[in-house]
Amino acid sequence: MAILEEMSALLQKGRAAKVKELVVQALEEGVSPEAILSEGLLSGMSIVGEKFKRNEVFVPEVLVAARAMNAGVELLRPYLVEAGVESKGVAVIGTVKGDLHDIGKNLVKMMLEGKGLEVHDLGVDVSAETFVQKAIEYNAKVICCSALLTTTMGEMKNVVEEAKKAGIRDQVKIMVGGAPITQEFCDQVGADYYTADGASAGDVALKICLGEM
């Protein structure tokens, strides 16, 4: 549909005001909220994510695109609720205890939202107990842990252990990422998935929520 293709293209350029205009126009033309979301907004953000993965666009371009997507989603939200359209899954995300870095975590959050997931951002310096309590509270299928420091990455093991202690380890997948994190480290601490970049994290989280991983 031409209007949704245009919406997707404008979203990729970060044109929030134009995206909002087109969301209104599409609704007036009778396009379903679900189609606007998936074919206009999420498809645009997905292309941005792929370009980001290939280093064809960078953080500023991702941020302005995410802002445009969120502007469109906010307008659309009441219509999505009315139509009974649900998110594709729930994730909680945060930077581990002792670590105050947030740009990597924020990028992953945007990529997950761009996949249609409901994401609860727990912020930075998040304790293992909080990760698990919030995962239970929001019925999350994914816990995403971020760390930038070699001195804080060990906290990820505490999140895994805390999930076991709370009895939810088989109900939730734990994803880890950040500058010092590797697949080897992920295996070592007993987490489920490591991804090297935010866009790949979005792909994996979506597959988890759809039961494909």
Partner: peptide, 11 residues
């Protein structure tokens, strides 16, 4: 970061 620079060549 690990997967690339925050800003690209055009910026």
């Amino acid at each position: 970061g690990k997967s690339g620079p925050l800003v690209g060549p055009s910026i």
